[in-house]
């Protein structure tokens, strides 16, 4: 059970994020929602990488009794998460920059009023 708690947290985070994107009218809040979904996905990747009894794959810092490479954890999920965080920051910066520019043009952050493009 205890091992499933992170997965439950992942689902909750994604649901909260989607709620913010779908039901909030302020575009800053929508951006926050996307960031929350992203945290959920990152948490999911990190949780996947957890192995009970595994050791971080740092050769110079290994405990004496551990065997190489049997108990080392393959660090791919962590690497994925780092990449994903970096991409997430870029997306976040871009979205916030767009939000600023949209505010300058439309004088509002309300997504229901930012719809010159329809039909």
């Amino acid at each position: 059970m205890i091992y499933n708690i992170p997965y439950i947290a992942v689902i909750i985070l994604i649901m909260v994020g989607l709620y913010a994107v779908v039901f909030k009218r302020n575009i800053i809040k929508m951006v926050m929602g996307i960031t929350i979904i992203e945290s959920g996905v990152n948490l999911f990747l990190v949780t996947l990488g957890y192995r009970a009894g595994g050791v971080a794959p740092i050769f110079t810092n290994l405990p004496e009794e551990r065997q190489i490479p049997g108990q080392l954890v393959l660090p791919i999920p962590q690497a994925l998460t780092l990449t994903s965080i970096v991409i997430g920051v870029a997306v976040l910066a871009l979205m916030l920059a767009l939000a600023i520019q949209i505010y300058r043009q439309y004088k509002t952050l309300d997504v229901t009023k930012i719809r010159r493009l329809k039909e």
Binding site: I34, V41, L48, Y106, R116
Partner: peptide, 25 residues
Amino acid sequence: ESLEAAFKYIVISSIGALFVLMAIG
């Protein structure tokens, strides 16, 4: 209009990409 289109595009595509990442996971 360009800003609006770009914002819609990035919202849609970043959410889509996050689900792709989830599937990869």
